[in-house]
Design a protein around this nucleic acid. Sequence first.
DNA 1: TCTGAAACCGGGAAACC
DNA 2: GGTTTCCCGGTTTCAGA
Lengths: 149, 149
Amino acid sequence: MTVMDDLDGKIIGLLVEDARKPLTEVAGQVGLSTSAVNERVRRLVAQGVIRRFTVDASPEALGLPVLALIWAAVPHAREAAFRSFAATHPGIVECHHVTGVWSYLIHLRVADLAGVETFLTHLKSEDLLERSETMLALSTVRSAPWVPR
Amino acid sequence: MTVMDDLDGKIIGLLVEDARKPLTEVAGQVGLSTSAVNERVRRLVAQGVIRRFTVDASPEALGLPVLALIWAAVPHAREAAFRSFAATHPGIVECHHVTGVWSYLIHLRVADLAGVETFLTHLKSEDLLERSETMLALSTVRSAPWVPR
DNA sequence: TCTGAAACCGGGAAACC
DNA sequence: GGTTTCCCGGTTTCAGA
């Protein structure tokens, strides 16, 4: 299905750095014509290799400096509810079902520590949380792009 | 510093969904002229609220289906070395310095489980790892945008 | 800081190699 | 699949409010 050569890789790399970079420039840097690049980008989007064009925003600038990493044990009977909650809650940046003693790892973006407490209290009140363990990110060496929602 | 009103918030929200959406459309949806939107976007970039325009790619489509979440204890004397390693290693998607018994949480994207072993072995051989604990993401309820490097 | 008009330039389609 | 050409439309700038 996925037919990718290293030119596609280069194109993606350039667009990762700046998605607004004119295709003419991209074309110049990969050694193709604009149309060829345009067609390849179209294909990459159609194939789902590129999921979307987006912006990487600064959570700090938008008032969400606190990143909490939360291990969560979810009541078995409430797992479906937990998943739909996690999929829509605006503070939840990531949520992975993981191996090990905890069922989920949540990345939570909030304005302050009170926001963490509010979040955990809310989860418990909805019976979506058996127990949890929270760690705070003191600093970040490397981060994924962040998008508000 | 950061002067943001809810119009800026709306604009960012629209660009998050589709960074290539014509500014004329954005303008229509927020009730401003194209020029005004253009100016606001320019300001948001200048202020660092928007860090960059990028693409959200599919790690699976690019042959990296495995996401490993690794807790790492790093030798105190090697922390600077660890940080610069983590900042540049292509497989490391995220790396946070955290509170708790572990010093770092790493998100590692690799092709298969052998990739996880190679990674850990390499870290140890460079004396960047005292001990670690690895969890695998079985499924992801919610994920941040992913960019290859 | 916004609007509206004008200039410019990049993107998308068509025809062809 | 690739290139070149051409046209449409979006971005950008500027004058004015």
